[in-house]
Nucleic acid binder design. Structure first.
Length: 308
DNA sequence: CTCCAGGACACTT
DNA sequence: AAGTGTCATGGA
């Protein structure tokens, strides 16, 4: 057990798949996050924000200390406010003001395959259903882990391996994809591509490879369009310059920055056009980080959505 | 009841 | 080239 300053992390802001890490709210406003990473259980508690605690069943993960691991996993090395240049603050002072509570939002450096599959589950449906799908996926096909804590045993399921998903029966997988047969088949196919080595996700991390090239490779798979490919690059491949445009980004680009294209439906052409203009607003290296911060500010401050 | 949710794709004008 | 329908379900 050691101390790590979780005030610097907007924990609610980053968790999506809820499986590498899962957030749970217990009775008395005491929040706990725990999840399986590489077969090890990580727990973060912050009932009192002044004394948050990160602990694990194992001192070492991947040969690194837990603190080292967490620092990287939570992107503590990235300062999101650096994504916003002075020109942005001058031009959009009211937006900049609104963003202040969200500058600590961190993007998790999640596992590429998990990121790929979870975002394939997230097409045109709400967060609750997405979560449910991922939960079913892990419980049906993921390795089961049992940990004994002071409070009693906890059971967790790791995210399924590409092999496990590739050999899954698409009909059975329907339960994990909101009964959507097309999506189930696409996920099995993508998993097979990764398992066979035909789709080498690790290779797409290479900074030498242009963003465009990596995206093009991802989009070759059925069920992966521009948005999902950009999400995989941003959340799973640590490509912080990738700028995914979903329905919410589409909306705030129109409302906050008066992008005319935002009035039109989000076709491929509109998507690319919006993306080019958005990239000019931020530090190119951290455009995706900026987008994610804006995303949460938009959802909570404007749409009043209870995200997590 | 209608509308929209962290979309992608086929199909029609 | 640009718009519309389909897939699916739940919550507001």
């Amino acid at each position: 057990m050691f101390g790590i300053n979780l005030e610097k992390i907007d924990i609610e802001g980053s968790i999506f798949s809820g499986q590498s890490f899962r957030w749970e709210r217990t009775e008395n406003e005491h929040k706990t996050c725990h999840g399986v990473v590489d077969g090890k259980l990580l727990i973060i508690e912050y009932g009192n924000v002044n004394s948050p605690v990160l602990k694990s069943t194992s001192r070492l993960i991947d040969g690194k200390s837990l603190e080292e691991f967490a620092r990287r996993y939570f992107s503590l090395d990235i300062d999101g406010s650096n994504a916003f240049p002075e020109s942005f603050k001058r031009t959009y002072p009211e937006v900049w003001q609104l963003l202040q509570p969200y500058l600590q939002v961190k993007i998790l450096r999640q596992a590429p395959f998990e990121t790929l599959v979870t975002f394939m589950c997230a097409q045109g449906i709400g967060m609750n259903i997405i979560r449910r799908q991922v939960k079913h996926l892990t419980e049906k096909l993921g390795t089961r882990h049992r940990f004994v804590l002071e409070s009693g045993p906890i059971v967790y399921h790791a995210f399924p391996t590409p092999e496990a998903l590739a050999s899954a029966d698409p009909d059975a997988l329907k339960l994990c994809t909101n009964n959507n047969c097309i999506r189930a088949r696409n996920i099995v196919d993508a998993a097979a591509a990764v398992a066979s080595g035909r789709l080498d996700l690790e290779a797409l991390r290479d900074p030498e490879m242009p963003l465009e090239t990596a995206r093009e490779r991802l989009c070759r798979e059925r069920g992966i369009g521009l948005k999902i490919a950009d999400c995989v690059m941003l959340f799973g491949l640590q490509r912080f310059s990738a700028f995914p445009i979903d329905t919410h980004v589409h909306q705030y680009l129109g409302a906050w920055f008066s992008f005319g294209e935002a009035l039109k439906s989000l076709t491929g052409k509109t998507y690319l056009s919006l993306q080019r203009r958005a990239a000019e607003l931020f530090d190119p290296e951290l455009a995706g980080f900026a987008g994610h911060i804006l995303f949460h500010a938009w959802r909570k401050e404007v749409k009043r959505l209870q995200s997590f």
